[in-house]
Design a protein around this nucleic acid. Sequence first.
DNA 1: TTTCTTTAGTAACCC
DNA 2: ACTAAAGAAA
Length: 632
Amino acid sequence: MELNETQREVAEFEGGVALVLAGAGSGKTKTLVARVARLLERGVHPSNICAMTFTNKAAREMMERVNIVLDEHYYFPWFGTFHSVCVRLLRQEYAAAGLMKSFKIFDEGDAVMAVKKILRNGDFEIGKLSPRGILAKISRAKNDFLTIPEFASGLPYYQRDLAEIWREYEKNLEEAGAVDFDDLLVKSVEMLTKNPEVLARLREQFQHILVDEYQDTNTVQYKLVKLLYGVEDGKRSLCVVGDDWQSIYSWRGADFRNILRFEQDYKNARVIKLQKNYRSTQEILDAADRIIKSSAQRSNKIMHATRGVGEKVIIKDLLDDREEARFVVNHLMRPYKNSAVLYRTNAQSLPFEQALSAAGIAYKIYGGQRFFDRKEIKDIIGFVRLLFDGFDEFALHRVINIPSRGMGDASIRKLDVFARANFDNYVDAFLGAFMSDLSKRAVAELTKLGSALQPIREMLANEAAPAEILRKIVVASEYYDFLDDGTDPEGSRRANLEAFINDAESYASMDDFLASTMLASSSDEDDPSDDFVILSSIHAAKGLEFETVFVVGMEEGLLPMRRADATEDDLEEEIRLAYVAMTRAKDNLYLLWARRRQMYGKIKQNDRSYFLDLVEGKEKEELGYEPCDFGW
DNA sequence: TTTCTTTAGTAACCC
DNA sequence: ACTAAAGAAA
């Protein structure tokens, strides 16, 4: 594998700590792959390397490419997302973490239901936050590694009860034997902090640690990395890779200042900058450069184009959003899969979908709904969760009316209370429902459901094959009859469900299957062989590249987005967002804006984005844009 | 208790 | 334009 000098430095260094500042298109993945391959060649065992990424796709790509380079079939047990590495850690050390062996993982839907329930049972001072808004605050606090009292002390008076809700929410999780996504990280850090012997064992295990997208790490992830690496001994290594210019996730707790803190925390860290861009033409890189230079807080890397001057970046104003879409269609070239339309908000996709359909051009919306977020998948998972001991009332709520049993909130609550008072799981309670004061119809339905589920519950207890259990559930719940109500005319839900069950075949235990299901994401499934134009939000497009990129909606208020409560830091992030969008392009870059567009059902007039002025070479000196001196 | 009607509030999405 | 939540009617 051919590496340039700085890339080789990353791949070759043996012990110690390195911070790699990898600019856009600088061959970051290739370099990481080379480093892993090099470690293996030196005799390091795959199980002694821990590599943490932000997406399953990134982790999988790294493993596959290492195996291709070395022509091997290594299995890397500790390569994965932060979350999947933590699941593995917690499954292995569940006792030390104070968890049940088969802890479940709550998704957003479960969490929302829990918060709604809490709100129903009390009068809370929360301002005008929605359940989702409340959860966002709690999630942020967890990612900032705050305790509940710390969180409480930082709350404004009009939201003073949020801490109480958080406490109740934790109680709900515990009762369901579950943790949420953020807890996977938080509980791992807590477990390692409280159990020095476990930590020592893991440090021995993880001789070499790699972290991808370091600019996107939040406080918990930062702590996790620090704990796992521990003290330098000259033999073990830590290699973190990131680009502060591409930090676009501050709104979910990411803090690119972790890169700044890096040299303070790891005193002997070497800093390696990858500043050669192998992706974009000079024209594109220059345009992107003029954008990022207007950001005040950034490292002062200097990116060099390696690919020649190329075509000029094209800036074009259109009458309205439909004209914008038509412009894109008229400028598309085959094969379509080399082109992408990137927008700030998902709501912008509609005109492009319409124009592309009208022109008979296939497209794919990148990101979008996760496979495992589909209703039919979550329904069946809901049944599985119902079959465990204990009371997962969120699963109950999800599936009790599948098919409809005429049970509303009130009846479900009654059933829940009855079950908890007399049984230790819901299935037994269904069978005993005749002793409750539920309606006749409800009792009849529940008895029938209970007797259908009881044998499956036993299969689960006996650790039967996951796919076998899922098939029985589909039969017992008469799920296909339920689907057969006209809402699934093409049978796609049914097909999804069958694909899901097939996937379960490759898992030995239900715990493992459920965990990997919860941690999967939409970007995990893509079929690059087909000829699609890609429609994507800028966020979801990070890490991708296309020959031709249309960045659309470059208007004041949209890109940069300006909300009423936007801070200076938020505007800085808009700059980085525009930078990420533009650096996706290899050969042709179009920057489009529409004078009028439909937003929230109304026609809105927009001004052209000042980002376009920057691209054209106008300076924004009045804001005093100077890079910070971080020492590198 | 359930279902229908009105009304308010709208980003980005990894796991 | 669309959705989710609250309020009103059946």
